[in-house]
Amino acid sequence: MEQIFFIGFAVLAIVSALAVVSLRNPVHSALCLMVCLFQVACIFVLLRSPFLAVVQIFIYVGAVMVLFLFVVMILDIRKVMLGSLVGKRSGFVYAIMPLVTLEFLLVIFKGGLGKVASNIPSGEEVKVAVIGKELFTKYLFPFEVVSILLLVAMVGAIVLAKDRDEGA
């Protein structure tokens, strides 16, 4: 039963990811990316990590995608869509990428990793309280570093997007 759900989520995620990189209109790409991120959140639920799934939906599907859509709307979409879709050397990439992917999948499924990777999970569903306790005791320093980095990124984004003329 779980495998059927996994296959459904995975197929939808891969199809929407392909749509993200192949569609011409950035708005359509952003919506497809939203679908893909939602599927990844579902995969997190399958991995018994409901807290991370909620965080994924809040931050990615909520905040980041709204940011993307806002920027696409602020900029002129028709101008963005003008010009050729892909760069000059993309044929080479299209030729090499499926081969590399196939090689990776062969290593994962047929190589030595296949035996190690098919063991039974030992982890139960992790409670949010446990994550919070770990985050605020053992991982307090990285937590603070990341919070300062978020503050710096926020200030930087405001400074970058601000009009230069009215400042100074």
């Binding site: 779980e2 495998q3 996994f6 995975a10 995620a13 891969i14 995969i43 399958l46 991995l47 999948l105 994962i108 499924f109 990793l113 296949g114 990777a117 098919s118 063991n119 039974i120 999970p121």
Partner: peptide, 10 residues
């Protein structure tokens, strides 16, 4: 039960 290799493949 979904094997780990499926997740890595995805």
């Amino acid at each position: 039960m979904v094997p780990l290799s499926w997740f890595i493949g995805l």
